[in-house]
């Protein structure tokens, strides 16, 4: 998908051959015939981590580093199942978690889902929440 280490945008045009869904299915194998034949499953219509990292690189290159950071966290979060992701978001809302619970969530992100960037982000949140009184009152 890369050319000299750089990605050409849009990937739909320039990386059509190598693009894969979260399931690993090739984009070229995702079509109406396959859908009609019942060969596709929902993960075939989900973005994959590698693609999100490619989009992050494109964003950074174009001068949008904060969006790139977001897409990098997103790439990590593709590994987190839907229900778990919803729970994590809920636990980051103000007054929902103790300091330790947030650290534990960061640990899970790092260990279970190989999401070190997001884990660091959650640790930072834990620190700020403690400073600003945004933790769960025990």
């Amino acid at each position: 998908m890369s050319q000299n280490g750089r990605y050409r945008y849009p990937l739909m045009d320039h990386a059509r051959e190598s693009l894969q869904a979260a399931s690993g299915r090739k984009l070229n194998d995702i079509d109406l015939e396959a859908a009609a034949a019942g060969e596709l499953n929902p993960a075939d219509l989900q973005v994959g981590a590698e693609t999100l990292r490619a989009q992050a690189a494109i964003a950074a290159e174009a001068g949008f580093p904060e969006l790139a950071a977001n897409l990098t966290r997103a790439a990590e979060l593709t590994a987190v199942p839907n229900e778990e992701l919803l729970r994590m978001y809920e636990r980051l809302r103000p007054g929902r978690s103790t300091y330790d619970e947030l650290l534990e969530m960061a640990h899970t992100l790092e260990e279970t889902y190989q999401a070190p960037v997001t884990a660091a982000f959650v640790r930072e949140a834990a620190h700020v929440y403690r400073l600003r009184g945004l933790l769960k009152r025990t």
């Binding site: 897409l71 966290r73 990590e76 979060l77 992701l85 994590m88 103000p94 700020v128």
Partner: peptide, 13 residues
């Protein structure tokens, strides 16, 4: 932080 996490959650999908 929760909003940024939510944004990443959306992007991950």
């Amino acid at each position: 932080w929760s909003k940024a996490f939510l944004a990443s959650a959306y992007a991950s999908r």
